[in-house]
Amino acid sequence: MQSNGHDQTAAVRDTIYRAALALDDQRWQDWLELCAPNFHYKITSFSPEINKDMIYLQGSRKEMDSLVRMLPKHNTDHSPLHRHTSVYTIDVSEDGKSAQAVSSVVFYQNMLDGNNSHIESGETRLFLAGRYVDTFAIEDGAAKFVDREVKLDNRRLDKGSHWPL
């Protein structure tokens, strides 16, 4: 869709992929820079075991900022996570000021210090799979996240993670 000479879908896609790279590289502040002040983040899953939609983590932009700033105080599995993200659909509003996007996402974990590093470091494992369901505000040709839901397929999460997905 074209509006005011800008390609909003390209802007949305660009923001999703830039966020993926920032999160892969643990550039948390760069990721948050892509988020609007009213940004809300959550990780969810549906459990057939208890027949409930679940929220595994959620927070505002401020709360996510606090969470990532506190990371150095915590003991963490430092095995890097890498996302393979494919944007499936982008729906831009009539006025061109907002958009929703659905992406498929797979998280790989490159083993480092989580268990026995001599044996496991360097190995890449499938960590999680799901979808990003994102909502954007579009202004001056740039798309910023106002909402991100990471909808996981997984309920088996083993050690889990301290990091935003």
Binding site: I43, M54, I55, Y56, L57, Q58, M70, H74, N75, T76, D77, G114, N115, L157, D158, K159, G160, S161, H162, W163, L165
Partner: peptide
């Protein structure tokens, strides 16, 4: 849910640390 998740969820602050410990 938020109180539970803040330390006990799979992306909370404590459970991840406990599981690293026991895996070690």
């Amino acid at each position: 849910i938020n109180h539970h998740n803040s330390i006990w969820g799979p992306f909370g602050r404590n459970l991840h640390e406990d599981l690293i410990g026991v895996a070690g």
